[in-house]
Amino acid sequence: MTTIYKDGEFVEENWTRADAETGTSVAGNALVSQSLFLEAAEDYLGRDGETAVLVEAGDDVEKLAPYLGRLAYVAVDFPSFADGRGFSAARVLREQIGYQGDIRAAGKYILDQVPLARRCGVSSFEISKPEVLKALKAGEWPEVTKYLQPVGTVDEMPVGTRPWARRSFRDVAVAAE
């Protein structure tokens, strides 16, 4: 069982990771790497159980476009907290391809990256680090309210004269009446 954080709640899910050995014969819900999935997409989608795809760092997520409506979710791997390619993959899925389904962060991200991943379109988190689980259960949310890159998934306003500087609407003080 894996702990998933989504919409402020924790749920336990059970997905079997398919590999080259198990292939499409994996039983139940299967999480498949993008490279394996693209080799036999229709076979994975036609078996019993739901199918989700794991996008690894460096994968071209645009190749998933024809299948996105039939996937349970797309997991984006963060192989290291210092590797930002997961953020880029999530943004391409949301902003360029228009994927409306669940994008799940998986791997070795840290708590400080959770709000930033949400800005990029990630909607759920597979939690593998106990310190991230503990902090989220304690209600910690290290929100950043000023950004240097605009995204298309969050309502923001420009800051000053720099067109690339943004501020969250949550950061604007409300005048008292």
Rank of each mutant, 00 (worst) to 15 (best):
Y5D: 02
K6D: 06
D7K: 12
D7E: 14
G8A: 07
E9M: 10
E9N: 13
V11N: 12
T22C: 09
A27R: 14
A27M: 07
G28T: 05
N29L: 06
A30C: 06
V32W: 02
S35I: 05
L36D: 08
E39M: 11
A40H: 14
D43T: 05
G46K: 08
D48V: 10
G49E: 09
G49P: 06
A52D: 02
A52R: 00
V55E: 00
D59F: 07
D60G: 04
P66D: 09
P66L: 11
L68N: 07
L68P: 05
A72V: 03
Y73H: 11
V76Y: 02
D77I: 00
F78N: 02
F81T: 03
D83C: 10
G84W: 01
F87L: 15
F87I: 13
S88D: 10
A89I: 07
V92Q: 04
V92Y: 01
E95M: 11
R104K: 13
Y109W: 07
D112Y: 00
Q113R: 03
Q113A: 04
V114F: 03
V114D: 01
L116G: 10
S124D: 01
F125V: 02
E126W: 13
E126M: 12
K129A: 15
P130R: 06
V132D: 02
K134D: 14
G139L: 06
G139Y: 09
G139T: 11
T145A: 05
K146N: 09
V151N: 05
T153R: 07
T153I: 08
V154A: 14
D155W: 02
E156V: 00
P163H: 03
A165M: 06
S168L: 05
S168R: 03
A176S: 12
A176G: 09
E177F: 11
E177H: 11
